[in-house]
Design a protein around this nucleic acid. Structure first.
Lengths: 204, 204
DNA sequence: GGCTTTATAGCACGAACGTTCGTTTTTGGT
DNA sequence: ACCAAAAACGAACGTTCGTGCTATAAAGCC
């Protein structure tokens, strides 16, 4: 890896941290250059445009999410246990990823959801990827016989995601400490509704 | 009402529409003045600072939400029916309020959740107000005997809010049309879990 | 209708924005 | 050690940002 890739990565690290606090559109070239300890033009050359930079940050954010949340959860056995691990990791992934604020991808999703263009597309692609992965894990839980065979997988993913979103909001905006506990409780209730006897008995 | 209040209201109407597309921090004095058909300084005089303007927009947004979502739902009888109406109204409130984009309050919540200050406080206050109102309606459903007496009201509000948030995301970012149907389905499942026999039989 | 109060416009300011360009420094292969 | 290539810099561009002033126009009261 050349020097170029190296500093580009350093820039993205800094960009991730900054955007987790001020969002993607609040992230400016000048401010980022300051944080990264280099000149505006030097930093700019790595991306070619602000839009490209934003997209790079989004991709990096997604990548980091996979490394921090998804990959570790895959060590759990398929089924409900893995889903639970997934949720637990999700709950404090920005802390684990050493980000000072919230999830940049989530912030970007709310900023660009009504502004068509490549940035919005990148955000949607990133989130869709996460959901696809989530849907796969749910399907495995069905195949493992822990969730009922007639489980509406997309509906399960829908409700799971809802739990994550509200937990994020409670944590970040309201600074409530019991947010992740509530999320876990909601998850257990969700699972109980969709579980087979076998799947249900697995828990405690 | 003097002329001042009148144009101030017109400005806020325009500001709400604009911020529903570009968010609160994407809303600039110049752009808003253009939309409102007046000069930057003339508009600026109504608020005194950009921050005050942002807060005014947030307050207005909350006000509009109450008029569009909460008030109509209060015509339904107390209990689960009212909660259901509340959700249904919520699902397309920005359309009913003739806003071109998503919920400005929700956008602001994600933009400012990690930036302490008066704007964040205003957003949190607005959202907290909505949750208080929601909690009240849940409590009424308990008192009406439709939800179990041991219902954890805050947990119910938590899960309810999650349904709303994910539905918003699915609608706005992914443009899925079945988002509100999924939300309603999730709501019925939520209610079924917390309902008494009487409350359960109420539905269909 | 005149007069006071209020509202709006016009203009200017310094700062920050994204972007371009030419120059200088650093790097990596030979 | 040298030299081409890559990377970073500094300065400047035109725009837009938020925010002050001062003057003009409109509105409301007697």
């Amino acid at each position: 890896m050349g020097k170029g890739e190296e500093t580009r990565q350093a820039i993205l690290d800094e960009a991730l941290a900054l955007s987790s606090q001020v969002g993607i559109c609040g992230l400016s070239v000048g401010a980022l250059a300051d944080k990264a300890g280099m000149s505006k033009s030097g930093l700019f050359a790595h991306f070619g445009s602000k839009e490209e930079m934003q997209i790079a940050v989004i991709r990096e954010s997604q990548q980091r999410f996979v490394d921090t949340v998804v990959r570790p959860a895959l060590k759990e056995p398929r089924g409900i246990a893995r889903l639970r691990a997934f949720l637990a990791n999700w709950m404090d992934w920005t802390r684990r990823a050493r980000l000072p604020g919230g999830c940049p991808l989530n912030a970007a999703a709310n900023e660009f959801d009504d502004q068509p263009g490549p940035v919005r597309d990148a955000v949607a692609a990133g989130l869709a990827d996460g959901r696809r992965m989530l849907a796969n894990s749910v399907r495995m839980a069905v195949e493992a016989g822990e969730l009922r065979p007639d489980t509406d997988i997309d509906q399960f993913v829908f409700e799971f995601t809802g739990i994550v979103l509200v937990a994020m909001q409670n944590m970040r905006l309201f600074r409530e400490k019991d947010a992740s506990r509530r999320a876990l409780d909601a998850f257990e209730r969700l699972v109980r509704d969709y579980a087979t006897e076998r799947g249900n008995s697995k828990k405690e």
